[in-house]
Amino acid sequence: LDLFICERIPKLSRSRVQKLISQGNVFVNNQKKSKSHFVKRGDDIEVNIPPLLKLEAKPEDIKINIIYEDEDIIVLSKPAGIVVHPSPGHPAKTIVNALLFHTKFLSDIGGVLRPGIVHRLDKQTSGLMIVAKNDDAHKNLSQQFKKKSVKKIYLALVHGRIEEDEGKIDAPIGRSRRNRKKMSVIPEGRESVTEFEVLKRFNNFTLIKVRPITGRTHQIRVHLSYIGKPVVGDVQYRKRRRIEDYLKLKRHFLHASKLDFKHPRDGKEMSFEDKLPEELKNSLNMLENKNIDF
């Protein structure tokens, strides 16, 4: 039943449909059914979609690591485990809530839930982010991202040994047909290009430097999974957890370590670096000391 509804109402995620069913908002022939109910020809299916609660971003006293700030921009180091802006699943305790507490000056272009947000990092990805403090800065930075002139470098630990020293993944990415919350490589997807360079090889793992040329949702994670080298700790694009449990890793090993762009006011070249968080350093140390093979 849930799959049938997802196919007919693609704007709803499968988890949202399952929640509607469990809350009694879906009827088959005027009767409530489970998500596993088999739909038959001639069934009358009614789906009631209650309005979502109105979200509002409020200032919250959350500590954030600001690396640089002036009248136009903020460069911060985002920790893993926190989302960038409020959403139905994460209405508070986001980077935006922390920014609103830190300053009254944020661009309005992103709307009330995304003030100042020019680009995003996934919840379990750590590292560098740029924030715009006014609309002119936001427009300028957005253009730089659009023109692919912003250089973003990530560090990732992946499963498997990558034998070539460097490479490029050029494969279109779009919304997964099976799970609307996931992205995947599909023929009708948008152009997506990722470059990588090997930094160190372990028994069955590789530490790489990654540069996404385009900026699709989950791009690095999807591309690395696509070539059979998924990011360690990425439970969304890789099921097995044995090595993550051993390393006591409660996040995926992906860190935005370097960010180069031009200052939106005067065009000055700006470059920032962010070291690996301690939990990722500890994981590397364990691999080096034990030389584990999973």
Rank of each mutant, 00 (worst) to 15 (best):
L1W: 15
L3Q: 04
I5D: 13
C6W: 04
P10E: 14
L12F: 10
R14T: 06
K19S: 10
L20T: 13
Q23E: 14
F27N: 13
V28K: 12
N29H: 01
N30G: 00
K32S: 15
S34D: 06
K35Q: 08
S36M: 06
R41P: 13
E46M: 05
E46A: 08
V47A: 10
L53A: 12
E56Y: 06
I64Y: 08
I67E: 09
E71G: 10
E71T: 13
L76M: 06
S77L: 13
K78G: 13
P79S: 06
A80R: 10
I82H: 12
I82F: 12
V83L: 10
P86Q: 03
S87N: 05
S87I: 02
P88A: 11
P88S: 12
H90N: 05
T94R: 05
L99N: 01
H102N: 06
T103Q: 02
K104I: 13
F105P: 00
F105S: 15
S107G: 05
G110C: 12
G111H: 11
V112Y: 03
L113W: 01
R114K: 09
G116R: 04
G116Q: 05
H119C: 05
L121A: 03
S126V: 11
S126Q: 01
M129V: 07
I130R: 12
A132F: 14
H138D: 11
H138M: 14
H138G: 13
Q143Y: 09
Q144K: 04
Y154D: 01
L155Y: 04
A156L: 06
I162E: 01
E163Y: 04
E164C: 14
E166Y: 15
G167W: 14
K168W: 02
A171M: 05
R175V: 01
N179D: 08
V185F: 00
E191Y: 08
V193Q: 11
F196A: 01
F202D: 00
N203W: 13
N203G: 07
F205G: 01
I208H: 07
H218C: 06
Q219Y: 09
R221T: 10
H223F: 09
G228E: 04
K229W: 08
Q236M: 04
R242K: 07
R242G: 07
K248T: 03
R251K: 10
F253D: 04
H255E: 00
S257V: 13
P264A: 10
R265V: 15
E269G: 02
M270F: 06
S271Y: 13
D274G: 08
P277N: 03
N282C: 10
N282Y: 03
S283D: 05
N289V: 02
N289I: 08
N289Q: 14
